[in-house]
């Protein structure tokens, strides 16, 4: 852990895992959706469900969905602000099998009807991990610029993606592959040390067999 994992972050209380981490999960979900959500269902699991209310976990998740960072003083007012922004919020609880105690399943929809389902956990100290997107396993923290590519599971897909990225001078730090079944839908998660050029992302999107490309950079606004 670096010294700023020990000292800091600056955050709205009361809990780095139940509040700051929850804001971050909401914010990652908004960025993955790519547009402000107009509908959000928050299904809390484990300790999030048991003590989430007293820790403001619900407010924190909504604040993140509204685009707030973990130190935003408006976090306590997230519900009225969501109403003003036209975001419909529904709260519930769920049992996610084998999940970390501080986990949540977020189902969001933007104004165009695009939907996204994110399963994520808060690991402590404000750090988080996304476990699955739209029911497909994935594992990333958002601490690095991250590409999430959903593609048809067929030979050559990985080579094609890495060829495009290497041509565009993007250095891949980590790469993971997941799929729901052979020949079905697959997910590639790539983390990079540097910001990934928009041109590379557009080229990936144009690739046959690639269903959806999502780019997550928590350093960027929006």
């Amino acid at each position: 852990m670096n010294i700023f994992d020990i000292m800091g972050p600056v955050m709205v209380g009361p809990s780095s895992s139940h509040t700051a981490g929850a804001v971050r999960i909401g914010l990652i979900t908004r960025k993955l959706l790519g547009r402000p959500p107009v509908r959000a269902e928050l299904l809390l699991h484990g300790s999030f469900a048991a003590t989430g209310k007293g820790h403001g976990t619900d407010k924190a998740l909504v604040a993140g969905l509204l685009g707030m960072a973990p130190d935003d003083p408006d976090i306590p007012r997230a519900f009225p602000l969501a109403e003003r922004a036209g975001m419909l919020v529904r709260l519930g609880s769920i049992v996610l099998r084998g999940a970390h105690p501080n986990s949540v399943l977020l189902k969001v929809e933007d104004e165009r009807g695009n939907t996204l389902e994110v399963n994520a956990s808060s690991l402590g100290g404000g750090r988080v991990r996304v476990n699955a997107i739209d029911g497909l396993d994935a594992s990333f923290t958002g601490e690095y610029p991250t590409l999430i590519i959903r593609n048809e599971d067929r030979p050559g897909a990985v080579a094609e993606v890495s060829a495009i990225l290497s041509r565009r001078q993007v250095n891949i730090a980590t790469m993971q592959l997941y799929r729901n079944m052979r020949g079905g839908l697959a997910v590639m998660v790539l983390e990079s040390d540097q910001d990934i050029w928009q041109e590379a992302i557009e080229e990936l999107r144009a690739c046959p067999g690639i269903v959806r490309v999502t780019y997550l950079n928590m350093e960027e606004d929006g």
Binding site: I6, M7, G8, P9, V10, M11, V12, G13, P14, S15, S16, T19, A20, G56, K59, D71, P73, I75, P76, G125, G126
Partner: peptide
């Protein structure tokens, strides 16, 4: 108290011990 009341604090090393 600021931490418990959802005000801004510095986790040092945690929010509970801030």
């Amino acid at each position: 108290e600021c931490n418990a009341c959802m005000r801004r604090i510095v986790a040092a090393p945690t929010a509970g011990a801030s």
